[in-house]
Structure formats: structure tokens, C-alpha cells
Amino acid sequence: MPAAGFKLGYTSAAMRAQMNIDQPNFGVLTEAHRLGVDGRAIDRGRLIHPRVEPEIALRLARELAGAGHDRASVSRHLDAVMPALEVVDTRYPDYRFTLVDNIADNSSSAGFVTGPALPWQDGFDLGAVEVALQIDGQVVDRGRGADAMGDPLLALAWLAGFLAERGLVVPAGAVVLTGGLTRAQPVERGQLVEAAFGWLGRVQTRFG
């Protein structure tokens, strides 16, 4: 299955505390992880015990390689930014696992949905973006871009450095989910999930 990009896990203190994980990790996204367009229903029946997380997604215009990147150097590699919802799921009962277990489970990735893409501009301050996660119209949690390692661009820089240690790169065209900005929230059949990211826009999906 062709690769689509990467998802970062446990970039926020809220997620590390919720899952008792002490450091970030990542998983690989394939085209099969794209769960359709914004607003399209997701088949709840094919999942075990899914949860959703609002995330800021970055799309690369050109390959990002090597370690030691900062906001400015990462910014020069970007093509677009998108509001996103990640669907996480796991084979482990009650979401109880070690970091190694979670890495083996591809960081619990079940799929993702992205909203409209905004062409990237160097002046965007993603750390200041505030997000409200809603289920059936009720706000269930809030976060901000800075909850992902201080800035989603720094989360992407971490990924580039981690991959560089293994002789790998973040390729051009990759979509990177930079980490959940709230605690992961459980979802059931029939529920409508929406995340509002202020000026960055909204993304929603329904579980059918």
C-alpha cells in the first residue's frame, strides 16, 4: 500500500498523561488510512474501540532530511496546513500498553480525515491556534497548537531528526499529523465529531 505520510503520537502532555507514555513516537500512514473527505461517514463497525483526536496536519512541498531543524528551516519545506481528525484504535484491551507495544501497533493509527488545505505561509503561528473538539455539538475538550511539542513545526522537526538517525527522510508530498492536541475521546456509532481550529478552519466526520 503506498505511503501517505506519518502520524506523531504523544507530542502533548495531555496524551502522555492519559496513556502513561513518557516520550513521543510515530506511525506510518498509508493511503488506506485516508478515511475519505471532510464530512464523510466512517464505518464504526470495522473498528474495535476507536477514539478521536484533533490535530494539525502539515503537507510537505519538498523532502525534509537531516537533524537540527527549527521552525524556520521546517517552514521552508511546507506546502500546506490542514485541520485534521485522527482516529486511533488498538488491539490492546482498555488501551493499556507500553511504549514498545504501541510502536508495534503503528502508534494506534486507524485513519485520518483532513479539512480544507490552506497554502502554507511563513507567517502562520500554529502554536497559537486554539481547537475545540465537539461530539454531537457538545465541546468535550480543548487544546492549542502549542500542545504539540510547543509548536507543530517543532514536532515535525523532531520527526525529521528521529528519522535521520535511521537514514530516513520525510519525503515530498507526505502528510504529517503532528500529534493530538487534546485527550483522545471515545466515539460510538451515529456520533458526529467536529474540531474547530479558529482561522485554520474546521473538520468533521460521522461514525456510521
Rank of each mutant, 00 (worst) to 15 (best):
L168Q: 15
A160E: 07
V28W: 09
V100W: 05
R96D: 13
G123E: 14
A57E: 15
D89N: 05
G5Q: 12
I48M: 13
P152W: 04
L99H: 11
G180R: 06
R16E: 12
A174P: 08
Y92S: 03
A67K: 14
A17F: 05
S108Y: 00
I21K: 03
H69P: 09
G198N: 00
L85I: 13
E55W: 08
A72G: 14
L118I: 09
E86Q: 03
R206D: 15
G198D: 00
P116H: 13
D122R: 08
I103F: 08
G145C: 04
I103C: 01
F197N: 06
L64K: 10
A84Y: 02
G179V: 04
V170S: 11
Q204N: 12
A4V: 02
S109T: 11
F162R: 13
L153W: 03
A4S: 13
I103R: 08
V28P: 02
A196S: 12
N102Y: 15
P119E: 02
R91V: 08
A41Q: 13
F162G: 07
R51E: 09
R40A: 15
D43Q: 14
F207L: 11
E55T: 05
R166Y: 07
A17E: 14
A184F: 09
D141T: 06
L64G: 07
Q18N: 14
R96I: 08
V203A: 03
F97N: 12
E188A: 11
A146M: 07
I135L: 14
G198F: 04
F6W: 10
L99P: 15
G201F: 01
M1Q: 11
T205D: 06
R51A: 13
N106E: 09
L47C: 13
G201P: 05
Y92A: 00
A4G: 04
L118D: 01
G68M: 07
P83H: 02
A67E: 11
G66W: 02
G208D: 11
F97Y: 12
A132Y: 02
L200P: 06
A80T: 08
Q191Y: 15
G68E: 10
L126A: 09
L58H: 07
R71N: 12
H33P: 05
P93W: 10
P83F: 03
K7L: 04
A164Y: 00
L58V: 06
R40E: 15
K7P: 00
R71L: 10
Y10D: 08
A164T: 07
F6D: 01
T90Y: 03
F6I: 01
Q121G: 02
T11D: 09
T205N: 05
Q23E: 01
A128P: 02
W158R: 11
R189Y: 14
D22E: 15
L153A: 03
K7S: 07
R59N: 07
G201D: 02
G179L: 01
G179Y: 05
E86P: 00
R206Q: 13
N102R: 14
R62E: 14
V131M: 05
F6M: 04
P93A: 12
A132C: 11
S109V: 13
